[in-house]
Simulated assay, not measured.
Amino acid sequence: MTAKPSVGTLAAPLVEALIRDAATLRLGVEKTASGATIVDGGIAVRGGLEAGRRITEICLGGLGFANFVADARFPGWTTGIQITTNDPVTACLGSQYAGWSLSEGDFFALGSGPARALWAKEDLFGELDYKDQAETAALVLETDKRPPDSLISFIAKECGLSEDKLTLILTPTTSLAGSVQVVGRVLEVALHKAHALHFPLDRIVDGTGLAPVPPPAADFLGGMGRTNDAVLYGGEIALYVEGPEDEAEQLANGLPSSTSRDHGRPFGEIFAGYNYDFYACDAGLFSPAKVRVTALSTGKTFTAGDYEPALVQKSFSGA
């Protein structure tokens, strides 16, 4: 495997700080009988925006920064989360992407974060030529339930670690922390779509992203709708790529969510139209609203897509 940064090693101090500051961040922390650490980001505790920001940086494998910024693009919703990373492929696809599907009994969750790179059984890791060798693992689960102990043991075993080296961070989409960490994937979804468009990942040098932070919803479907709408209709990214100028332009034109047949309605309506089958939705929809791609060979920037303020307002206000 090509020598690359260890997302697990880089994220470990961020995980330690999250646990150390749990009381201030309104997080719950427990140890299982086998020694695994469970961090509750909003199930039995309140959690908060700052917790979500920190969890986003853990998901990025310590290779990126998440910051709250003033965002004047959408009247009434003036807080945005900005993502920056100088290694977007490893940070977003090698760590942040929610690519580990975990289920047992009535429990199901998608796992993201640095532990994925220890497991490294997704086909994507073969393409990235990457497998982590960290001594600890952190996995973020989008869930409102505590995973069963047997599944926790399975995760640790799949990562090749004892359970006392594993931390699971649970983030319900209806929580403040959960909302932030989902919207904090605005750059990651662009990387994932670039991969689907067969743009060479090794030519993506740098990246930034911005999306408005929605209010949390009262239920899972509402939360899924608002967080997706924040990215699909309010998200903006910039990529800096190597290679021919015309290929940078082609990438820009192919990336925005507006290229999808499903674009133009609140995600909650789209999801309901597919009988709540996430995988029936057009995969091309999951991308930011507006993109800029700069060809480093010439310095020319190509812009495509645009925001949909009315849809953001409708989604966030519950109208």
Rank of each mutant, 00 (worst) to 15 (best):
R185Y: 11
V182E: 01
L168N: 04
L161I: 15
A194T: 12
E158F: 04
S150L: 08
D202N: 15
F199N: 02
G184V: 07
A194L: 13
H192Y: 13
R185C: 12
P148H: 05
L166W: 09
I152G: 01
L151V: 05
E158M: 11
E158W: 05
V183T: 12
G160T: 07
F199H: 06
E188F: 07
F154R: 15
F199K: 01
I169P: 01
A196T: 13
V189W: 08
G178P: 00
L197A: 12
K157L: 13
K165T: 09
S162N: 15
L176R: 09
R203D: 13
L151K: 03
I155W: 00
V186S: 05
D149A: 06
F199R: 00
L151Q: 02
G160D: 08
T167L: 06
R146N: 11
R185E: 11
A177T: 08
D202H: 15
S179A: 14
E188N: 08
G178K: 01
G160M: 07
S153Q: 12
E163Y: 08
L161Q: 08
V189Q: 09
R146G: 05
L166C: 10
Q181V: 05
S175N: 07
E163Q: 14
L151E: 03
D144P: 06
S175H: 03
R146I: 15
I169M: 11
L151N: 02
G160Y: 06
A156V: 01
L170Y: 02
T174H: 06
L168D: 06
S150G: 06
K165D: 09
A196R: 15
R203P: 11
V186E: 07
S153P: 04
G184E: 09
A190D: 01
H192P: 02
R185S: 13
V189E: 08
L168C: 11
A190G: 10
T167F: 03
L191W: 11
R203S: 12
R203C: 12
L170F: 04
V186Q: 08
F154K: 14
H195G: 04
C159F: 02
P172R: 04
S175V: 03
F199A: 03
T171N: 07
P200S: 14
G178Q: 00
A194Q: 06
A156D: 00
A196M: 15
V189N: 09
K193E: 05
L187Q: 03
L170M: 07
S153M: 10
E188Y: 06
H195K: 15
H195I: 05
S175L: 02
L168W: 05
L201Q: 13
L161Y: 11
H198T: 14
V189C: 13
H192G: 02
R146P: 04
I155D: 00
V189P: 03
E158R: 12
S179C: 14
P148T: 07
V183K: 03
L201Y: 12
G184Y: 06
L151S: 03
A177C: 08
S179W: 01
R203V: 08
D202Q: 15
P148I: 05
S150Q: 09
A177M: 09
H198W: 11
R203H: 15
D164T: 08
C159I: 04
L151F: 06
L161R: 07
E163I: 10
C159A: 14
D164K: 12
V183R: 02
S175C: 05
T174I: 14
H192V: 05
V180P: 00
T171P: 04
E163T: 10
R185M: 10
T167W: 02
P200N: 13
D149H: 02
D164W: 07
D164Q: 13
